[in-house]
Design a protein around this nucleic acid. Structure first.
Ligand code: SF4
Ligand code: SF4
Lengths: 137, 137
DNA sequence: TTCAATTACTACTTATGGGTAGAAATTAAA
DNA sequence: TTTAATTTCTACCCATAAGTAGTAATTGAA
């Protein structure tokens, strides 16, 4: 019942970057140190995020990472999708899924509401909104 | 964002047993076949559930598993605790946890509500209630 | 007592997520 | 052109979850 480390790290990294928009690019070394994320793991994750076109990477000296689009245009859900961690509509708390209306279990109806709230949280929260609240993570 | 297979299977097994209270004991073979759960994995899980004293086991001929207490006295959360899958009060959607009120992130407040709903779902749903609704899983 | 039916135990294998190592590619500046 | 600072790529290693195999222990009945 938790996000994968990759998603957790990714959210923290991009939140941190959104909170420091003054510095145009941030290096993997800085992010790794400030956020206490293993350097090698961080660069692996960042490569995925670059491929998903949420950020761009600048290689070579004075290189680093910068946003490809405005943080106001990036949703938490965009990050989760990269790591296959987004909550699907059919996703079942028991991992069975696709029960029809007749055979559904007693947990089904109770699962709908928290699921929708989490989907809403992920699908409507932008990085800018998070940064705006002075996120310290 | 999903329960472990062990928890998923355990909920399904005990729900099935609660739905068939007429037959006093159920064998691992029957449960495995009816619920399509690998036999060897099922017996491993059941041993844990027996140790947690939710069910008793009867060894030898005509043996099997039976409830140690009434299904009305067993909560989903009791099952989740066996496999360390229960949602703790401090549990954080980002896996960081223990943020104080000042440094909390923007997701924190939005996380509270779905978390509480899930805790409520697990802590207040009894096996009997589930069985009463004709659970087919 | 012997047998067959059962769970429990020990130990292994496989799959996946998390993490690491080293070298290659790229780039700005000296 | 050389160098140092950076990301990227390929290939691993480690820990944990998921699943399997074989055998021991238990028990009711023939
Ligand atoms: S009815 Fe129960 S098992 Fe089926 S999809 Fe809904 S929550 Fe999952
Ligand atoms: S403030 Fe954010 S990171 Fe901290 S415990 Fe709450 S949800 Fe997790």
């Amino acid at each position: 019942m938790q996000l994968s480390k990759s998603s957790q790290y990714a959210i923290r990294i991009l939140s941190y970057m959104a909170n420091h928009k003054d510095s145009k690019v941030m290096t993997a070394t800085e992010l790794s140190e400030k956020l206490d994320i293993p350097y090698k793991f961080l660069t692996k994750i960042m490569t995925d995020i670059v491929k998903a076109q949420l950020v761009i990477s600048i290689r070579g000296r004075d290189g680093g990472y910068a946003f490809a689009r405005e943080p106001s245009e990036i949703l938490i859900n965009d990050i989760l999708e990269i790591f296959h961690d987004a909550i699907e509509d059919e996703q079942c708390v028991l991992g069975i899924g696709f029960c029809n209306g007749i055979t559904k279990c007693a947990l089904h109806d109770q699962w709908m509401e928290p699921k929708m709230l989490m989907q809403k949280m992920f699908r409507e929260s932008t990085l800018e909104k998070i940064a705006g609240q002075g996120c310290k993570i």
